[in-house]
Write a protein that binds this DNA or RNA. Sequence first.
DNA 1: GCGACAG
DNA 2: ATCTTGTCGC
Length: 219
Amino acid sequence: MRVNLLHPWPTSVAEAEAVQERLRPSVELTGPTAFATVAGLDVHYHGDEELTAAVVVLSAATLEVVEQAVAHGRAAFPYVPGLFAFRELPALVQCLERLTVTPDLLVCDGYGLAHPRGFGLACHLGVLTGLPALGVGKTPFVGSCEPPAPERGAWTPIVLEGAEVGRALRTRDGVKPVYVSQGHRIGLGTACGQVLRLSPHARLPEPVRRADRLARHGR
DNA sequence: GCGACAG
DNA sequence: ATCTTGTCGC
């Protein structure tokens, strides 16, 4: 699929923040409720700046792999909380461009709306591709939430400035929750439903686990 | 000033 | 993110 990464790439914190502010109004918080194919995206770092990005497209019905791609590169921005996406975006976009199929949903490793400026990696990838996207984080990063009940499926809202920007969602009984937020063209309930459905036996959704494995081990 | 801070 | 084994439980 084709993706247009913005030209010139930001070279300062102020420029990167300005990009987020400029793209944020494009985020749509409603969209499809069912998806035939789902892509997981992740990045593995080796050394200081070198990285491998991976995308794995699965059939939503069977969780079988449809297609996958990797891209090697360097972190494209220093690590600044809130600007995390700028490190990985070029390599992730390159992965997506190597796909011959267009996935119906992007499952990103990180946050979407649950972000200091309401524009995390999942929003950024969603807006650049125009595809529905959601973010799954492994740690609470922004806002506040109560721990959900210990049963799989239990959730609590992540609240930021009085608004629900995501949910802490238990995907396995008695295991730490994941933190789900909308990226683009998806409702929060749909996003959580997809994460649950895509995580039948592990804490993290299968597409993200596959992408993580591909980025780390090349398989 | 110090700690916190998606990956 | 990364440095890292075995172990317990489903």
